[in-house]
Amino acid sequence: MKRTLILLFPLLSAGLLSSAQVRYAGTTVDLVVSGTSTLHDWNMKSVKADCSGVFTLNSAGQITSVEDLVFSTPATALKSEHTSMDNNAYKALKTEKNPLITFTVSSVSITPAKGSASTVTCKGKLNLAGSTRDEQVVALCQPNADNTITVTGIEKISMKDFNIDPPTFMLGTIKTGNDITLSFTLLLKRS
């Protein structure tokens, strides 16, 4: 019996080590918010964010679970090429009372993708301009050889769903569209 346990120990250890939970975090993001207006399409970009979560990877390097995932970015980190546009956007986002845009994940489903990548569908609470709504974000998560994870995705949201009046310019002669697109790339490192 003792000999059998000694022989099984390496197998049990290998099984436990091949799917360990590891906390990952990232502080930089390539986030682009884009939309339309009666004059031209527009973009605002941010490279500041805080994101962390606990990821479990199997022995093949694929993500099998994600827990405690949270994301935040300062609303005023979003910048366009025009200061006046930024100021109108910050006013619409109510940044004085709501300085952060946050997403807190409540449930995750994972589907294997090409190679070691996984499609991760996150449902959670998105807080934008002081309004919180249940939203779904789908991202492609690619574990890398250097023990990082690259997270990319594109989501569309409606400003009015968050009680945001689409900004206007030049006394209302230029109006922005209601729908915006969020595109993001985030690099997560073991923390």
Rank of each mutant, 00 (worst) to 15 (best):
T64S: 06
S65H: 08
S65N: 13
V66N: 03
V66T: 11
E67G: 04
E67P: 01
D68E: 11
D68W: 05
D68K: 15
L69K: 03
L69A: 09
L69M: 14
V70E: 14
V70H: 14
F71Y: 02
F71Q: 03
S72V: 07
S72W: 14
S72E: 14
S72Q: 13
P74R: 09
P74L: 08
A75E: 10
T76C: 10
T76E: 15
A77V: 02
A77W: 03
A77F: 04
A77H: 06
L78C: 11
L78G: 10
K79R: 09
S80M: 01
E81S: 12
H82C: 06
T83P: 05
T83A: 07
M85N: 00
M85R: 09
M85F: 06
D86K: 00
D86Y: 10
N88K: 12
N88G: 04
A89N: 04
A89M: 15
Y90Q: 00
Y90D: 01
Y90H: 05
K91A: 11
K91Q: 09
K91E: 10
A92D: 01
A92H: 03
L93I: 06
K94M: 08
K94R: 04
T95W: 14
T95N: 11
E96V: 11
E96T: 09
E96G: 08
K97D: 13
K97T: 12
N98S: 06
N98A: 08
P99S: 02
P99T: 09
P99M: 04
P99V: 07
L100S: 09
I101D: 06
I101V: 15
T102F: 03
T102E: 13
F103C: 06
F103H: 01
T104H: 11
T104K: 14
V105Y: 06
V105P: 11
V105T: 15
S106L: 12
S107P: 13
S107Y: 12
V108P: 04
I110Q: 00
I110A: 02
T111V: 12
P112I: 01
G115P: 00
S116E: 11
S116T: 10
A117Y: 02
S118M: 01
V120Y: 05
V120C: 00
V120L: 05
T121S: 13
C122T: 15
C122G: 08
K123A: 10
G124N: 13
N127I: 13
N127F: 06
N127Y: 11
A129L: 10
A129K: 02
G130W: 06
G130Y: 00
S131E: 14
S131C: 09
S131W: 08
T132S: 15
T132D: 12
T132Q: 15
T132R: 07
R133M: 13
R133S: 08
E135K: 15
V138E: 11
